[in-house]
Design a protein around this nucleic acid. Structure first.
Lengths: 203, 203
DNA sequence: GTCTATAAACAGATAGAC
DNA sequence: GTCTATCTGTTTATAGAC
């Protein structure tokens, strides 16, 4: 709220984010974070008291990078087809900038669900809104019925999984990094096409 | 190859598998593995020398649980539609029995790609076989063209992601465990339906 | 093969000088 | 605020008795 946080604090956050998202909480070392930040361990504790508290700060920041924009699109006054296209594009684009975030978030939540899952409980209402929109578009003869949970699960699965499984998919398909980047670009089209074709009402 | 491995060794493997898949390599403790196995730490080292070697044994075993059956289905003489249905069913069924495996495998590979990705490089030829089948079914007027990488990525994404994101999806959709089990059962139908509808040639 | 006891290294956290 | 030095608890790994 001050507008300008201390410079050192931001440097620490940036370093911690890199190390935590790359190694996970258990694999991260305060020493490495200090090294990346170009300071020493004592200063980390001076600013954040403990590894736990530093992690908590990073995790909250990461969640704010990952979720709000997607939710905003899903809640916007677009058609379902438009939402599917926009989320696919935005999500893949965001994860290309932050390739480690996906596996990081899901790994940490799996390891510590009780503590971290509270961040998502307020989204329940949003599912109902999507379900209402589905019902309307079914009645309008645009799409065939589908549960909101499945549509959203399909959409997020297809966007996120290629980042979680990147080394495996690259290895299996024999792709190098440049080919994988092209593969991801293609998926911005493939994913909407797949999902829309699957629910579009045939005339 | 002896046919009967020592009983203690199997007890250790079972305990180690549970702890490693649940906590990850960095979060796992030799002490906890010993506790779960009902023995003491020294014996772990007697049988496996180090945490690294024990992990390696577990990881290989896990990969053999996860991949071969799926590859076998993809390489079998079924139609694409049949393969999609069978993989969806088998994969979801297997992961219901081993819900921790998915996030475990992808987290460990992400943390250590150089070391672990070698396990997948021999699958490149399999992609070409699927691609050939796709071409044939396109020529037969059954499906529309799609790259094998995208079809397989779609298929695995949709099957695996619900297990990786289980706590998040449960939280967002407000489902309890029983509802989530039903959700997973529904996906055995939804996934093939989605993928097949998306590539089926319209008459 | 299995145990107890302990060594050796590491990692988070703090004390205290500047 | 930032540093060096150090304490404390933890964790892997080994020694050695049985």
């Amino acid at each position: 709220m001050t507008g300008i946080d201390s410079n050192t604090e931001q440097i620490i956050m940036k370093a911690a984010r890199r190390v935590f998202t790359n190694k996970g909480f258990d694999g991260a070392r305060m020493q490495e974070i200090a090294d990346v930040a170009g300071i020493n361990k004592a200063l980390l504790h001076y600013y954040f008291r403990s590894k736990d508290k530093l992690f908590e700060a990073i995790f909250k920041e990461v969640l704010n990078t990952v979720f709000p924009k997607i939710i905003a699109v899903l809640m916007s006054p677009l058609t379902l087809f438009e939402k599917i296209e926009k989320v696919s594009f935005n999500y893949i684009e965001m994860l290309k900038q932050n390739p480690d975030l996906a596996i990081f978030v899901f790994h940490e939540i799996s390891r510590n669900p009780e503590r971290l899952v509270g961040n998502f409980k307020n989204v329940g209402a949003d599912f109902k809104i999507i379900q209402t929109q589905i019902t309307k578009e079914v009645e309008a003869g645009i799409i065939v019925p589908i549960k909101a949970e499945h549509l959203i699960a399909n959409l997020i699965s297809l966007c996120v999984f290629p980042f979680i499984a990147r080394p495996v998919l690259m290895g299996m398909a024999g792709m190098d990094q440049a080919e994988y980047d092209r593969f991801l670009e293609e998926r911005k089209q493939i994913i909407p096409h797949t999902l829309i074709t699957a629910i579009k009402k045939q005339k």
